[in-house]
Design a protein around this nucleic acid. Sequence first.
DNA 1: ATATCTTCCGAGAGCGTTGCCGGCAACGCA
DNA 2: TGCGTTGCCGGCAACGCTCTCGGAAGATAT
Lengths: 340, 340
Amino acid sequence: MERQTTIKDIAIALHLSTSTVSRALRDAVDVKEETRTAVKQLAEELGYQPNRLALSLQNKHTFCIGVITPNLDYVLAKMVAGIDEVASEAGYTVMVCQSDESFGREIVNTKRLQESLVDGMIYSVSSETKFFEHIKKMQSKKIPLVMFDRIVEGIKAPKVGTDNKEGGMLATKHLLQQGYKRIAILAGPENLEISNERMAGYMQVLKQNKIRIDKDLIIHCDFNQDYAYEATKELLAMKKRPDAIFTISDRMAIGAMLAIKEKGLRMPQDIGLVGFNNEPVTNLVTPAISSVEMFATDIGRAAAKLFIEMLQTDDDMSEVKVVIKPKLVPRASSLRNNNI
Amino acid sequence: MERQTTIKDIAIALHLSTSTVSRALRDAVDVKEETRTAVKQLAEELGYQPNRLALSLQNKHTFCIGVITPNLDYVLAKMVAGIDEVASEAGYTVMVCQSDESFGREIVNTKRLQESLVDGMIYSVSSETKFFEHIKKMQSKKIPLVMFDRIVEGIKAPKVGTDNKEGGMLATKHLLQQGYKRIAILAGPENLEISNERMAGYMQVLKQNKIRIDKDLIIHCDFNQDYAYEATKELLAMKKRPDAIFTISDRMAIGAMLAIKEKGLRMPQDIGLVGFNNEPVTNLVTPAISSVEMFATDIGRAAAKLFIEMLQTDDDMSEVKVVIKPKLVPRASSLRNNNI
DNA sequence: ATATCTTCCGAGAGCGTTGCCGGCAACGCA
DNA sequence: TGCGTTGCCGGCAACGCTCTCGGAAGATAT
């Protein structure tokens, strides 16, 4: 990489001091109109670009946001896109690191971003993450942090996420309304709060309707089509098999659907199915799969907004929590037209 | 953000000079074993982390790679994941900027990344991009550049991409083998090379088989499900309608499929369909859509490898081009079991 | 005429780090 | 005892920029 032209080059060429050039470029006071224009013109000619590094070194402000994401699947990619959109509008650049659902890589990435001196991080934990010392350590260094989507309640930081419990309730209520009686749930890893919340919604609705919660109908498995497929096969092999399945992701719903079809069962007649995320694919398969829309891009946008707000205020925002209400999108996989 | 502990803090605490501390931490020669351990221990206790900014300011090396991507859809997200994987293994952090298919945002992002002093960029152009001055300007500043996926032949830089022509040929050959006679193509914007190359493959196979190329069967439209849907409706409304459609993306294939179904035509009997990218959705819809697999993650990995190699060598690598062979994955949408 | 403001600019320090050079002991050897 | 060598360390400059301070020159007031 060639040497960039610096403020010094301009200073020498114009027989000025670097301070004056700096002031002229920043439109500060105390500079004659004449020199100001001369400086600006030469800067333009030489293609001068300020060195952000030098700037950052001084005012400890990099205009970089570190984003830690477990992966870049549909939902998270949309969220990252939302973050990028708002951040870049505010003059920030985004450093994206994927932990690939690995606790180890999450830690490495967190450390590396800290070294790179990002102005803060927008964080979503991996599905493996059960301990949070790395996050707390970061906070003890007063590095601003916003959590999104895969939130951890134990961490004191502003958070943005879906109302997962509500989502679980919407799905479960819908299935009950459609006349399903024995509703199973395919949940995620037990440490993942978003999964537990969705499950809490499921359980609450069952309780409200005085339905006994059958532990055999609650399956924890990986956020993964194949696992969901296997889990569903087991569910369907039960003596008293469920007549509906709520999966906490669409990829799991797809896995479930494959197992259901393989078994020769019909949706929605023999069995109902509701997923989560409302990925486009749910509307393309046959039957189309009902799903809970969670407005991923909005969550990303909100996270970035919160982050920028946090940088600008001195208030303690660690209690702020933006909760975005999900919406059920009913489709063929669970619509029995209210006949039981 | 609190003040990070610096080398100076350690120096003062231990009654040493900053130079000695620096040497001790870097395991350099000229430091007594005793002081070395003392320094390291205190550094550990204070949670010392070297300030990358200061380092970078000196040696003009940020260990950051800027990635410009038009979006984070399935294929590009996989590529970015591949880049991140290799880059992070080599100690680099990745700054991702989405141009959102907008020429303006692409320019802004490019400029901003330059200011942030990335060590170079890995680049994929937006579908709007018809002029490349911003890229050439960057190259004139000797900023290392690797292009991936949406490559521009006119730019002198190492490139990684699919063999798009081969992909177009595979799809077209397959359709001919399955007995389709009148094959239409839904291409992308006319300035997009990847689209034109896939189309070139299509045309070459037609020529090889002495089939007249019918311009009415070549449609340029946006990389978009809705446009593809509309375009397909028009195709199917023709007097002599095509009996097969090759779309240069799966999202377009989905749009085409919807239009075909709406028209009451059956796949593969009445009309054949082949997409591109081999997104999982192609295997989930009914009928499953044949598609060309392009190994996106590998492309990302290769791009990052090429980039790192470029930084380490003095050789001119601008002529290097890694071309990854695609593979056709035939599915129900175009498999007529060889009966015409 | 002197005193007091403006206006405009330069010098120098500092951000955190490393690289280069020089210095001071201690040691070895003649 | 004298001299070179080695081991260990500190000082200084530099990376590119901004900020604070002070000062020269001219304008205005007394």
